[in-house]
Design a protein around this nucleic acid. Structure first.
Lengths: 354, 354
DNA sequence: CACTTGATTGTTAGCGTTCACATACAGGTG
DNA sequence: CACCTGTATGTGAACGCTAACAATCAAGTG
């Protein structure tokens, strides 16, 4: 009985003191070896390392965190992590963090309500993360975050730059300008626009970039159509658009073919299907440009011209900013990183007759 | 100077003792309130809660973990987390874990070498996770894991059931049978197969299910074509297949149209494009069935018949198994969970002439 | 009324680290 | 040779919490 209990006690993981005992040194020397302190004799170092090896010892992270006040953990709040963009960003963040010796704890939200966001941040703070990256693509979430007044260092991603927090985002306006400009340059008279949901900052910025480009070119700005990022919404909008294009084609012959800039690739996919079903040809009757460059885009029918975002860079930048806040005690709410997207030209925007 | 230092010291987060002092009780009473111990007078409970509120106190998770020996954290090792399947599984895991009061730390691998896997698991163990979910879709990774002999509870996902570890996976064979059977039933004489990379267990199982179904039906089994999951590889294979189908069509008229079961939706997309470009029609000249039901599949041209996997269920099951191991001390390596997939029929496999 | 019982609170001792400090010894310096 | 300097080690005290054990008091019980 007493023996059993002893055995059970022995089975618990070895501590630094156990290692010290085995190596014939003090626990502090073991600690020094582990933290690569310079003043340790090579011989003792080896003895300690051998003891560590033999016992299968690993430092207790909780004890370490307790005394150092550092958990070496960062939190991430994400939404829609099964979509290509968010998932890629998440990957970039995790890799960059691990590179710097940090672990990442993620909380995924189904919807972006104030409560859910608050709960997520609470959860992470309770777990002792040292800082948080919040992916806040929606206006609603941004204002919720503004009211929350988190005690920890926070970096926002895709949340615009209105907040008094360091932020990283892709230059969505630029992306929209590249797309729209490309279509105008290719000789299309009009560029329609299928926008994302109104409260998404990315949707807004892409709309704004599209509109500005048209205005600057002195072209009339058609009323934007609105989708919700899903292929289905793109399909529905596409049906409507196909109708208008067909009517226009019947009305004025050769008045300059029309084009459409769709706010993401998934909606563009749905739109392509609708256009096909309407018996129209892409790009001859309607040129299409998307946004995101999901892996599938190259194999759409036809292959989709689109705007590529460097999600890895976004992830890396957000970690850089967060760690910057952790090191330099002072928060620098003015730090903004803007990543430039690039246009990938494929056949959905290049008429064969060209 | 000394005042500054005092201020800095004061600024550090309040402890349980601070709360106790303010509430006029012992720190232990505060602890009892927090852990919902029954024997606390309602009045004191309120006083304590108010003090907590006023000081903005939160429990120090490191101190808690140190004494309870529980970090309330689980680790996940994933690969290709930007792909739909893995990302969805990850999401399911995180949600299920959070539901149970656990936090999830993720490590993403670029490639599945033994070293990378070992490093990832090491990293997680160093961080004190209580258990690990490993998504091991490749044979190579499974054998690496076998040799690793991790001390912690481990659950494998999509790693087959050969390991002496609890495991969760989707019944890939069944999925392949549903797909192949559906095509045979629809009257297609032959079902080709585009397989995934050979060392992927999912690819193997899907091949096996396809082969078995054909054999059971007494149909000749064509040599499988092989891709690497990417749309590009599907495109290349599709070009080859289109050539054969065209040749066959020229040779024997109406000898029963052919069909192909592609091991994932992305390759199916590439294949669809190749078939189109070859001037053939899907499903009239060639019926296509995919696997995964990615959100885009419904909007392919034509909409893709495919096999849907319930990734959320996979995530939940893996957490259930892992927590089961944590509670019931004894590891139960015999626990297997198999999730049944379902066939989603769309027009890529239903000829219009039908 | 002494005696058990249960509710409510407090006291003390770790958990396994790191940090600050003390100690011991070697080699140079005046 | 006393004295400083730097290297190499050990000692003791936190870190902030929970668990185990006391202690106190009110309410029943025989």
């Amino acid at each position: 009985m007493s023996r059993d209990m002893e055995d059970a006690a022995v089975r618990r993981p070895p501590t630094m003191t156990d290692v010290a005992q085995r190596a014939g040194v003090s626990h502090q020397t073991v600690s020094r070896v582990l933290s690569k302190h310079p003043h340790v004799r090579e011989e003792t170092r080896e003895v300690v390392l051998r003891a560590i090896e033999e016992l299968g010892y690993r430092r207790n992270s909780a004890a370490r965190a307790l005394v150092t006040r550092r958990t070496q953990t960062l939190g991430v709040v994400a939404c829609h992590p099964a979509l290509f963009g968010p998932a890629s960003t998440l990957l970039g963040i995790e890799e960059a963090a691990r590179e710097e010796g940090y672990t990442v704890s993620t909380v995924n939200l189904r919807r972006y309500t104030r409560t859910e966001l608050a709960d997520a941040i609470d959860h992470l703070q309770d777990r002792g993360v040292e800082g948080i990256v919040v992916i806040v693509p929606q206006r609603q979430a941004v204002s919720a975050l503004k009211e929350l007044k988190v005690q920890l260092p926070v970096v926002t991603v895709e949340g615009g730059h209105d907040l008094d927090l360091p932020s990283v985002s892709v230059d969505q306006q630029l992306g929209a300008r590249l797309a729209t400009g490309h279509l105008l340059a290719a000789g299309y008279g009009t560029v329609w626009h299928v926008a994302g949901p109104p409260d998404w900052l990315e949707a807004e910025a892409r709309s704004a970039g599209w509109r500005a480009t048209l205005e600057e070119a002195g072209v009339q700005v058609p009323a934007p159509l609105v989708g919700d990022w899903t292929p289905l919404s793109g399909y529905r909008v596409g049906q409507e658009l196909a109708g208008r294009v067909a009517a226009a084609a019947a009305g004025r012959r050769s008045a300059g073919r029309t084009a459409v800039f769709v706010a993401n690739d998934q909606m563009a996919l749905g739109l392509l299907r609708a256009v096909r079903e309407a018996g129209l040809s892409v790009p001859d009757d309607l040129a299409v440009v998307g946004f995101d460059d999901i892996p599938e885009a190259e194999f759409f029918l036809p292959p989709l011209t689109t705007v590529r975002q460097n999600f890895t860079a976004v992830g890396q930048a957000s970690i850089r900013l967060l760690l910057g806040q952790l090191d330099g005690q002072a928060a620098r709410p003015d730090e903004r990183v803007v990543i430039a997207p690039s246009l990938i030209i494929r056949s959905s925007s290049v008429p064969a007759t060209h």
